[in-house]
């Protein structure tokens, strides 16, 4: 009897081992552990045994059943894993196939530059001021110390609508309007916008372009404040290693007037084609607000002073991104504009 049981166990274990898939294994389970299987038969036949043998035999059959069950479970787990793996293998995809494009648009490069500048000055406590693109001669010129007959206000250079109305030639009239509106209160503004000049469109000229200007008015605003502000701006916009230098210049609405150069961001000042071998790149014009401008807006130049600066986002974008022709900004070629979708640094 014992020998028989042992053989039964060996047979069952061999069958389990043989089973190579879940179906075969299930057959083995039914064959050996099922209601009509030999083990059940053995247990059923237990009654025929003498009473004293029953416990020993019962224990033996149970051990065999447990062993077979255990091995079968193990095998089952293995075969299940195998089946899953086979299924997954079938499901494999070619990961090099193109993804479904996520459709997105992006800022125009000039908006990108303007917003970057706006955000820097907002962080410094500036407000963003805007004004009309069709402007009165008074705000565009007169209030900015460009009286009638001044050479810089040639009819040939501006788009006039009538004797006294024109398309603004710079964003400075927004400064004049803001000063007038603030009635003597301190000012910290940045003014972005479209401006127009009577130029033929070519690689470096555009009859419509953008400008962004800044104005700070208050008691004891100093030229050193202008320099400090512009230096921080240059570092934010063009890299922390940037140095600035101021050169004397001339604008009718500021005195003293300066032009600001930054150390070349391409060569670091050694001289390259971007900085035309000088190590410096001209970025913006600035100066201390001319007393006549303050007076005309109702500020007392003896008490109040201010600084102003202005720059061209086109020029900055051209320098930053290496764009060689200003017309690219107004052609709206998607192959151009879409290049400015990604972040930098």
């Amino acid at each position: 009897m014992e020998q028989q049981l042992k053989e039964l166990k060996e047979r069952a274990l061999a069958k389990i081992k043989e089973a190579s898939n879940l179906k075969d294994l299930n057959e083995v389970r039914v064959a050996y552990l099922g209601k009509k299987g030999p083990i059940t038969d053995l247990l059923k036949g237990m009654g025929k045994l003498p009473a004293e043998e029953r416990p020993q035999m019962g224990a033996l059959v149970n051990v065999i059943r447990e062993t077979v069950t255990e091995v079968l479970e193990e095998r089952l787990a293995k075969l299940e894993e195998k089946a899953i793996n086979e299924q997954l293998a079938k499901e494999a995809i070619d990961v090099t196939l193109p993804g479904r494009p996520a459709r997105t648009g992006n800022h125009h490069p000039l908006t990108r530059v303007v917003e970057e500048i706006e955000d820097f000055f907002i962080s410094m406590g500036y407000e963003v001021a805007e004004g009309p693109e069709v402007e009165k001669d008074y705000y565009n010129f007169e209030a900015l110390n460009l009286p009638k007959g001044h050479p810089a206000r040639d009819m040939q250079d501006s788009f006039y609508i009538s004797e006294d109305i024109l398309l603004r030639t710079h964003t400075s009239p927004v400064q004049a309007r803001t000063m007038e509106a603030k009635g003597g209160a301190p000012i910290k503004i940045i003014c972005p916008g479209k401006v127009y000049r009577r130029d033929n469109d070519d690689a470096t000229h555009s009859h419509q372009f953008t400008q962004i200007e800044g104005l700070v008015i208050g008691e004891d605003i100093r030229m050193s404040d202008l320099k400090g502000t512009l230096s921080l701006f240059a570092k934010k916009m063009f890299g922390t290693e940037r140095e600035i230098r101021l050169r004397p210049s001339f604008f009718p609405f500021t005195e003293p007037s300066v032009e600001m150069d930054i150390s070349c961001f391409k060569c670091g000042g050694d001289g390259c084609n971007v900085c035309k071998k000088t190590g410096w790149i001209e970025i913006l014009g600035a100066g201390m607000v001319h007393p006549n401008v303050l007076k005309m807006a109702g500020y007392d130049p003896a008490v109040v002073s201010g600084f102003a600066f202005g720059m061209g986002p086109e020029r900055i974008a051209m320098l930053k991104y290496g764009v060689e022709d200003i017309r690219h900004f107004y052609t709206n070629d998607v192959r151009f504009v879409s290049q400015f979708h990604r972040t930098e640094a």
Partner: peptide, 10 residues
């Protein structure tokens, strides 16, 4: 999905 354009006012 729209790309920003900048066209002339005139």
């Amino acid at each position: 999905g729209l790309v920003q354009a900048l066209t002339y006012s005139l």
